[in-house]
Simulated assay, not measured.
Amino acid sequence: MAAWLLPPRCLLCGLPGEAGLDLCTACLAALPRLPPACPRCALPAPAGEVCGRCLARPPVQAWAVAAFLYAPPLDRLLPRLKFHADLAAGRLLTQLALPAFMAAPRPQALLPLPLHRSRLRRRGFDQALELARPLARALGLPLLTGGLRRRRATAAQSGLEARERRRNVRGAFAVPAGVPLPDHLALFDDVMTTGATLDEAARVLRTAGVRRVDLWALARAPPPG
């Protein structure tokens, strides 16, 4: 009855949705699914092999997975959640991304990358948490919301070079005292760009005793050029 009274409409173009999604057939086909990618950093790589950079300098994380490339038209859909609190967009993105995470190695828990409290107050919600909550529920995973905190506000990463991004987030995270952490967890964020923020958070979690940290992101920014 609800579907008949309020049929789905495409959030990108306004045409009728398909298959119960708020997305039409054409826009669904246009979404930039991640091609075969390096399993350590999620950057596109031939046949999904470990890339040369990760072979030369193995990253902190054991695995990295993203559902999409951050490219049109996804770059119009995700900001609706992130900057305009469009929870319908977040719900749609979780539905679309779920198969990629179902195919990933299964962690013991999912930990969304936290915002600093000052940014959370300004924005009013945490986009990583809003995406991770239904994802954890669909996968039957515990959701850890207090396993990591940002102990200082950092400048926005957008517009910074890779080296500046790493410097910007150095020392930004801490594991609260007395918080039990599993041996294997997945750290989740909406977009993985250079990976500097997730790398720093993963390093802190490993130092705190987590044996394996995987990185999950809704989208992976394509490499420069």
Results as ranks from 00 to 15, higher is better:
residue 137 R to H: 08
residue 92 L to Q: 13
residue 102 M to Q: 15
residue 88 A to M: 08
residue 138 A to W: 05
residue 103 A to I: 02
residue 129 L to N: 03
residue 125 F to N: 08
residue 86 D to V: 11
residue 93 L to P: 13
residue 87 L to E: 15
residue 106 R to H: 04
residue 137 R to P: 00
residue 86 D to T: 12
residue 145 T to C: 14
residue 136 A to M: 07
residue 94 T to P: 00
residue 129 L to W: 14
residue 106 R to T: 10
residue 102 M to F: 02
residue 111 L to D: 09
residue 115 L to D: 12
residue 80 R to T: 14
residue 116 H to Q: 05
residue 86 D to Q: 13
residue 140 G to D: 05
residue 128 A to G: 02
residue 95 Q to G: 13
residue 126 D to K: 00
residue 87 L to N: 08
residue 117 R to L: 12
residue 77 L to D: 11
residue 110 L to A: 10
residue 143 L to K: 12
residue 118 S to Y: 01
residue 120 L to K: 04
residue 132 A to Y: 07
residue 107 P to S: 03
residue 144 L to Y: 06
residue 139 L to Q: 05
residue 110 L to T: 14
residue 136 A to F: 09
residue 92 L to T: 13
residue 98 L to Q: 08
residue 105 P to A: 01
residue 82 K to Y: 10
residue 116 H to L: 11
residue 100 A to N: 10
residue 105 P to M: 03
residue 143 L to I: 08
residue 112 P to K: 05
residue 89 A to R: 09
residue 138 A to Y: 03
residue 111 L to A: 02
residue 130 E to Q: 14
residue 129 L to T: 03
residue 119 R to C: 12
residue 131 L to N: 04
residue 139 L to S: 05
residue 96 L to F: 10
residue 114 P to V: 06
residue 143 L to D: 12
residue 113 L to E: 05
residue 133 R to K: 08
residue 105 P to K: 02
residue 127 Q to E: 08
residue 127 Q to S: 11
residue 88 A to W: 00
residue 79 P to R: 13
residue 78 L to D: 04
residue 122 R to F: 00
residue 100 A to H: 12
residue 82 K to I: 10
residue 140 G to F: 09
residue 112 P to N: 11
residue 144 L to T: 01
residue 79 P to D: 05
residue 80 R to H: 10
residue 90 G to M: 11
residue 144 L to C: 12
residue 76 R to Q: 15
residue 124 G to S: 02
residue 79 P to T: 12
residue 108 Q to M: 13
residue 144 L to R: 12
residue 88 A to T: 15
residue 103 A to Y: 04
residue 145 T to V: 13
residue 108 Q to L: 11
residue 104 A to R: 03
residue 76 R to T: 04
residue 110 L to S: 14
residue 140 G to M: 01
residue 146 G to E: 07
residue 97 A to I: 14
residue 132 A to T: 00
